[in-house]
Design a protein around this nucleic acid. Structure first.
Length: 900
RNA sequence: GGGCGCGUAGCUCAGUGGGAGAGCGCUCGCUUCACACGCGAGAGGUCGCAGGUUCGAAACCCGCCGCGCCCACCA
């Protein structure tokens, strides 16, 4: 150990790259991350990681959320180490098969090879994706290790694992049998990019400007009077509809007006002739129609518009599908248009209508257009046979859980959002026309078309013995993700893991998947396990690019966390992200990362300093295990122990409150603002190997060594959840036993060490030192020289020597000062002044200017307080403590001003 | 259209009822024997605007201006 410490001599900087992988290996080997499944979830602590996409790589969101979860996990693991009997801490790890995203990546690779999934066939393609997963699926897990994340790597799950797949099939069957899962022909969000239906939540609206066309449809002559027909129109009159999607008119099956629209009352029941097609369209009344939009006459296309679909259902209209799943016009669109793309068809239809003189008006029109969040292509609403899940019964207990606090959402302004969505929940389209995913466990008989729904494939049709074929579609990836907190632990089997770690404690995520994932986990958790899957949901910030835009690959605004780790160290990145995080979105600031880097380096050097100076006097004992006994005698020892107790209390409270920013920054402030800037500077002279050391006796030196190393050890342990690498590295020097800090007990504040007297005295001394240093600077006193002075303030009994040393003053006693030597200048300090007795090398004019400025400042402050105290309202209504405080302050400042 | 949130130092952000703060940047001084990725000292702010509540408002309330996000079926 002595040699190791000696080697520190030359290491003046903390080099993350030298230690990170070595330390991570030690953690892994220790088994600390892989708890035995004992005990019960009440006492144990667990978090299920939001499973990253198996082919993904670490982005800033992962890095922030990883840091947050690791702080919680490391904090709880260390707390657990102090419990008797001990409890266990598990961070459940795994990846998500991410249906569309993964399939798209592999398809892209196939395209580059000049082939396609269709050419390969389903089986070979799925095989190919598994290969891909073998190849690239571990990247992100390795990247989490770089961050220092203490997940249970020995128990990694994948949403397509055999056991997990069984759970998924099992859930499908259960919910089908409850009648909540059903198959239906319904209008869905068709994503031409992935050639699949997607759910409402995977659709994003983009603001676009299109052309709004007004098109005239003639009416069928029905022999009745020509009311409602324009005089200039054809004999039967006409209607004029408005649309931004003229190509869909080919699928119109009605025209609608509002039932209370006086203008068109007589049109209802008549028919219009669909231009280009000739179909007769009934004119119906439906109160969906807005009377004040356009002409108040609406074309109805049930097969290609969700609203029209509803209208169609109400009026039993035909559904004419003119756009196919390939995004091209179908045969139903007519010979002229069949096979054209939607955009081509739009042009062709407009051209044809124009030729017939039917376009009455064209105007630019701004509106929201649906796009696929998955492929980026424009959504094509169309009618399709899909599997749906009715959510109403699932939602009810999930609403209750949040309302009654069984699930707490932090920060709680997200509660309202969750509840609003849940209260208006709609059926979930759970089938996807993909090959990569959980194939729906439904089997159709080839002979009698009987439908079998079963978790394992039946041999033959139970009705007729015919051959069965499985449903082609797979489930929405989020269907399997919804089971994550318990399926990862082995559910539906009653495994020891499930018994020990479910329900989990907290789920941490960004708000973008609150509905997509979190809400569904709550619903499924309650339905299937009878328990909420976690008691807290923590919604963290979204980190934006430094310029405030989204961080995204396509915009080129992304910042790679791994690159940042390589540049600044994992501790720095963790610290920085946590310090940035907040209850709202924040911009990435590399300065915060650098602040973390500085903190790691500072702690490293402070520890190095203490060890190098103190080691000799301890003979290589387990330094940090020393309690600061004999009890500290000096005021600064009492002060730092008191401050340590405070930061210990604060840090634990902040972590438990999910206030990571203040937890991290509070540690920084303690290490810089108290431990290094003041405590170390105050005690330096008491350490061995210094010229002045002779004046200290052995006992005092040992007391200091014990206190110093104790404070450092506790600080390093306290900071471990935030900056695990540097603290673990330092611990290896501080701890003689060779134990891992990660498995050690978390520091717990010792209330008996809180010493408010010492705090008041040291704080006053610090203020005085800062005042003198400022004064020295302004009068041009050289940094090295010691200035003779007289301390004219009563309250520096035990801190006067500290004040003298830190401010480089020499306080002369009355007799030494050859009688009452005249003050050449004076410096205001709390509770009095310091008189300067030598002007050597000082700018006395500047000193006088400074004195005047200080007096003015005091005067202004005195006036302000006087004004306040002369206000009868203040004295009468403000709390007595506040009034007394102001009175005291007035007294003190007046005395200081008089002395100056 | 509904909801949530934000506007504080040049930049990124804390502060949420009684003396305007941090990090970075900037200025000045220090090769002070832990750290020059360092140390010390400074400059810099009518706390978006306008009202109100209060003895007292950066903070609480109302309105306005500006910005962001989420939800929503007006072609």
């Amino acid at each position: 150990m002595a040699e190791r410490i000696a080697k520190l001599e030359s290491r003046t900087r903390f080099e993350p790259s030298e230690v990170e992988s070595r330390i991570f290996e030690r953690w892994l080997d220790s088994g600390l991350f892989h708890p035995k499944p004992d005990g019960d979830p009440e006492h144990n602590y667990s978090i299920a990681i939001p499973p990253p996409n198996v082919t993904g790589s670490l982005h800033m969101g992962h890095a922030l959320n990883g840091s947050i979860q690791d702080v919680l996990i490391r904090y709880q693991r260390m707390k657990a180490a102090g419990r008797r009997p001990p409890s266990r801490t598990k961070w459940i790890l795994g990846t998500d098969h991410a249906g569309i995203a993964t399939q798209a990546q592999v398809e892209k690779a196939l395209l580059a090879e000049g082939t396609s999934r269709h050419e390969l066939g389903r089986e070979a393609f799925v095989e190919r994706v598994w290969d891909w997963r073998e190849h690239y699926g571990h990247t992100i897990v390795e990247q989490f290790k770089r961050l220092g994340a203490s997940c249970d790597y020995a128990d990694e799950r994948f949403t397509l694992d055999e056991g997990y797949a069984r759970a998924v099939a099992d859930v499908f069957v259960r919910l089908y049998e409850k009648g909540w899962i059903y198959r239906d022909r319904y209008i869905v969000n068709w994503d031409p990019g992935s050639r699949s239906a997607i759910s409402d939540l995977e659709v994003e609206e983009r603001h676009e400007t299109d052309t709004l066309y007004s098109i005239r449809y003639d009416l069928v002559e029905d022999g009745a009077a020509d009311q409602g027909a324009s005089p200039s129109g054809p004999p039967g009159g006409s209607v004029t509809i408005a649309t931004v999607r003229p190509e869909t008119m080919l699928g119109d099956t009605a025209v609608a007006v509002h039932p209370e629209d006086e203008r068109y009352r007589d049109l209802v029941g008549r028919h219009a002739i669909l231009p280009l097609v000739g179909r007769h369209l009934p004119i119906i009344a439906d109160d969906y129609v807005k009377m004040d939009f356009g002409t108040g006459q609406l074309k109805v296309t049930p097969a290609h518009d969700p609203n029209d679909f509803e209208i169609g259902a109400r009026h039993d209209l035909d559904q004419v599908s003119v756009i196919g799943e390939d995004g091209c016009m179908t045969a139903e669109a007519g010979e002229r248009f069949a096979g054209l793309s939607v955009m081509q068809a739009r042009e062709a239809v407009v051209a044809a209508l124009r030729e017939e003189g039917r376009i009455v008006a064209e105007e630019p029109y701004e509106h929201e257009v649906p796009y696929s969040h998955r492929s980026g292509e424009r959504i094509e609403p169309l009618i399709s046979l899909q599997w749906f899940m009715d959510m109403t019964e699932l939602a009810k207990p999930a609403i209750r859980a949040v309302n009654d606090g069984a699930v707490r959402i932090v920060p709680d302004n997200h509660r309202r959002v969750y509840l609003d969505w849940m209260e208006n929940i709609r059926p979930w389209c759970i089938s996807r026309q993909l090959w990569w995913g959980h194939r729906i466990p439904v089997y159709y008989c080839e002979t009698c078309s009987h439908v079998h729904v079963a978790a394992t494939e039946p041999d033959a049709c139970s009705e007729c013995g015919g051959r069965l074929c499985q449903e082609e579609d797979v489930l929405d990836t989020w269907f399997s993700s919804a089971l994550w907190p318990f399926a990862t632990l082995g559910w539906p089997e009653q495994t020891p893991e499930l018994a020990a770690f479910y329900p989990t404690d907290v789920l941490s995520t960004a708000r973008d998947i609150l509905f997509l994932w979190v809400a569904r986990m709550i619903m499924m958790g309650i339905e299937l396990t009878g328990k909420v899957p976690f008691s807290d949901v923590y919604i963290h910030s979204v980190i934006q690019a430094p310029d405030g835009r989204r961080m995204s690959k396509s915009l080129g605004t992304g910042i790679d966390p791994i690159q940042e780790i390589e540049r600044h160290g994992a501790d720095a990145v963790r610290f920085g992200l946590l310090a940035m995080s907040s209850t709202q979105d924040v911009r990435y600031s590399v300065e915060k990362i650098q602040q973390g880097q500085a903190l790691a380096n500072k702690l490293f050097n402070a520890t190095r300093f203490a060890l190098l100076r103190v080691h000799a006097s301890l003979g290589g004992e387990a330094a940090a295990e020393l309690e600061p006994e004999p009890m500290p005698r000096t005021i600064e020892d009492r002060w730092i122990l008191s401050r340590l107790a405070q930061i210990e209390t604060d840090t634990a409270a902040r972590i438990e409150d999910y206030d990571f920013s203040h937890a991290a920054l509070g540690l920084y402030d303690f290490v810089y603002g108290e431990l290094c800037d003041w405590y170390l500077e105050l005690v330096k002279h008491r350490l061995p190997d210094l010229g002045e050391a002779g004046e200290q006796d052995e006992e005092s030196r040992e007391a200091l060594a014990a206190t110093l190393l104790y404070v450092l050890g506790q600080t390093v342990a306290l900071a471990h959840p935030v900056i695990p690498f540097v603290t673990e590295e330092l611990w290896s020097y501080l701890d003689g036993a060779g134990d891992l800090l990660a498995g050690r007990q978390y520091p717990c504040a010792d209330a008996s060490r809180v010493d408010l007297d010492a705090e008041v005295e040291i704080e006053r001394a610090i203020e005085a030192i800062v005042a003198v240093r400022g004064w020295r600077d302004s009068v041009g006193a050289r940094a090295g020289i010691t200035i003779p002075a007289r301390l004219c303030a009563p309250c520096y009994g035990s801190t006067a020597p500290l004040l003298a040393r830190m401010a480089r003053l020499q306080f002369l006693e009355e007799d030494e000062a050859e009688g009452a030597q005249l003050a050449l200048a004076s410096v205001a300090i709390p509770g009095g002044v310091i008189e300067i007795l030598s002007a050597e090398g000082l700018d006395l004019a500047a000193a006088e200017r400074r004195r005047t400025a200080a007096a003015e400042k005091l005067q202004v402050e005195i006036e302000r307080i006087r004004g306040k105290l002369e206000n009868p309202g203040f004295v009468a209504k403000a709390p007595a403590a506040v009034v007394d405080g102001e009175r005291e302050r007035l007294q003190r400042l007046t005395a200081e001003l008089a002395a100056l």
